[in-house]
Nucleic acid binder design. Structure first.
Length: 579
DNA sequence: GCCGTTTTCGGCCCGACTGTTTTCAGTCG
């Protein structure tokens, strides 16, 4: 449902970028950017709004509302099309390179005719960038480095984007007459942070209607192949979708096979071979007699191999098969276990919704507690002041009384500076129920300095959670370079939780990092870092990361009772309270 | 282009950091 909003948001963002690239007014561009964000974070469906309704969205005025309704009615935005005609798409792509903004991209385009990242790479290699005004040796080197970073990240699609499409496809294909079962498989089902393609599995006696339904989808740009058992298409966004139709009796074996991972499957097959069995996408068979032993459900297949069903998020051959055989699979944390969100924003800083609206949405999610943690003053762009924060606290205390089932915690997201210090003196910090502290700048410090600043933040008695600890952005920014083992040890020792930031662009810490941290005894907070009401639902990606890290409820502080959580937030380990 | 304890124009997220400058432009959060 939110996808149309995202689509319109993306178009408005593109329009804003093209305004800048065509030398238009920067405030005008910013205004479209703001509208894009606002539309993307709007909780309702744009399709149900007329122009007056659209104008009621903050940041959307006459001009933007008109463009949106034009798009809703015709599927086109004329003003956008005309700017697209002036600026080649690759010029905008060039601004994706870290450190390259619109000014530089335009300069490269005007002076050298560069209209793609690839052309820029070639020009840099050929030494053609030298001598351009404002581009010294260092900048050229930074551009090269940026291109390198960009190329390493590309080629895969964010989990959230792929999941959105996959859920849509499963809903539509599952409703096709004759379809018995339909689900997505592959790395998507294992909830990896990015996916290479979407695998959809379905059962039906006659596959033709299912194949036809996929081919008729509006986002199909290219048909790679289509037969009776498999159809592959590529979407307009370049994402490949494979639909496989199997016999109902083979559903379980096929689902195991296509869910993977490859390494998990290989180990399963090895286990089968040892017992004189053969495992394929068609079933588990006795080699000698050729008799089929299991295939109808995943549970049957695993059971016939002497194993309990293994959750897809664990199927990476990281010891899950051995653990399953020993009856030692972890009791993974589930979405329903989450009792609260401990890192969220409101429109007091860069969030989109007022405190009241965020709280109501949180209450609707069934939370027992909820922390509002707006930005602190050192992130200057947020214009936070002591007075604003105290006024919000007073309001939060009032609102707390209005919710019988949910406690409102007043917190903040502090800024960890280059030395590891944070905003506000200790006495002011003591007034918060909890403090998240995160890095927002100085990403380029060396390993020793990054390690030191993170440890120093952990040692601060008022810092309860380190937010997005590595600051990586998928496809955009690499993680900072720090000795994470040292940081994990400090976090565990000081009673500072590390965040599993659930924003799909962040997913920070990663599953592997969380797994390593857990071995140090670190506790975690699964937080949405929501800047809008729909983003509160991103928690599902945090849960997925936690599961992939083998975490249980006991590892995750926001599955705990409020009493236990409050005891943890007092940081007895640092304050010398003796526990 | 949007918005208004500013009412129809005149501001708009501010400051650090970097690399190129010799006083500043571009990028980023």
């Amino acid at each position: 449902m939110a996808r149309l909003n995202d689509e319109v948001g993306a178009l408005l963002r593109e329009y804003a970028d093209l305004i800048l690239l065509s030398g238009g007014n920067a405030f005008r561009a910013r205004s479209y950017e703001k509208a894009a964000r606002s539309v993307g974070g709007y909780p309702g469906d744009l399709a149900h709004l007329d122009e007056a309704g659209l104008r009621a969205i903050p940041g959307v005025g006459d001009s933007t509302a008109e463009k949106i309704s034009e798009y809703l009615a015709s599927g086109r935005m004329e003003a956008l099309e005309s700017l697209r005609a002036k600026i080649p798409p690759g010029v905008r792509e060039v601004t994706q390179i870290p450190g390259v903004g619109p000014k530089t991209a335009v300069l490269l385009y005007r002076k050298l005719g560069i209209k793609s990242v690839d052309e820029l790479r070639k020009a840099a290699d050929a030494g053609k960038l030298k001598g351009l005004p404002g581009l010294g040796e260092k900048t050229v080197e930074n551009i090269r480095h940026g291109i390198e970073q960009l190329s390493q990240a590309s080629g895969r699609t964010l989990l959230s984007i792929a999941l959105d499409l996959a859920e849509d496809l499963v809903a539509e294909l599952g409703a096709v007459p004759g379809c018995k079962k339909c689900d997505y498989a592959g790395s998507l089902r294992r909830m990896r942070e990015t996916v290479g393609d979407i695998d959809i599995l379905a059962t039906a006696k006659d596959s033709a209607p299912l194949m036809a339904a996929l081919l008729a989808r509006p986002e199909v740009a290219d048909v790679i192949g289509s037969g009776t058992t498999k159809t592959s298409i590529r979407t307009d966004k370049g994402l490949q979708v494979d639909l496989r139709v199997v016999q109902p009796a083979e559903w379980g074996a096929a689902l195991v096979y296509f869910t993977g991972s490859r390494a998990h499957n290989i180990k399963l097959r090895g286990r089968a071979v040892k017992e004189g069995l053969k495992l394929s996408e068609y079933g588990l068979f006795d080699v000698e007699s050729g008799k089929k032993l299991a295939s109808r459900t995943e549970k049957e297949v695993y059971a016939a191999l002497g194993l309990p069903w293994i959750p897809p998020t664990l199927r990476e051959d990281r010891g899950e098969i051995e653990a399953a055989a020993d009856g030692a699979l972890p009791d993974l944390v589930q979405l329903k276990d989450l009792r609260g969100d401990l890192h969220t924003h409101t429109d007091l800083t860069d969030g989109l919704a007022p405190l009241e609206v965020m709280l109501q949405t949180a209450a609707d999610l069934g939370y027992a507690y909820y922390a509002v943690t707006d930005h602190a003053p050192n992130l200057a762009m947020q214009r936070m002041t002591d007075d604003k924060m105290l006024a919000q606290r007073a309001r939060a205390r009032d609102l707390d009384r209005e919710y019988s089932g949910m406690r409102v915690l007043h917190g903040t997201e502090l800024n960890i500076d280059a030395a590891g210090d944070v905003d506000w003196p200790a006495d002011f910090l003591a007034g918060f129920d909890l403090c998240v502290a995160s890095i927002h700048s100085s990403f380029g410090l060396d390993r020793a300095a990054q390690t030191k600043r993170l440890i120093r933040a952990c040692e601060n008695p008022h810092v309860n959670i380190i937010g997005h600890p590595t600051t990586r952005l998928l496809d955009r920014r690499p993680p900072i370079d720090a000795d994470l083992d040292a940081v994990f040890a400090a976090a565990a020792h000081t009673g500072t939780a590390l965040e599993l930031n659930a924003s799909p662009q962040r997913l920070d810490l990663t599953d592997d990092q969380a797994m390593a941290a857990q071995r140090h005894g670190v506790k975690f907070a699964i937080n949405s870092d929501a800047h809008s009401t729909p983003a509160l639902s991103n928690r599902r990606f945090g849960i997925a990361t936690a599961q992939r890290a083998w975490l249980t409820k006991d590892d995750v502080i926001n599955t705990w009772s409020l009493t236990r959580l409050r005891a943890f937030l007092r940081k007895p380990a640092v304050r010398g309270g003796g526990g």
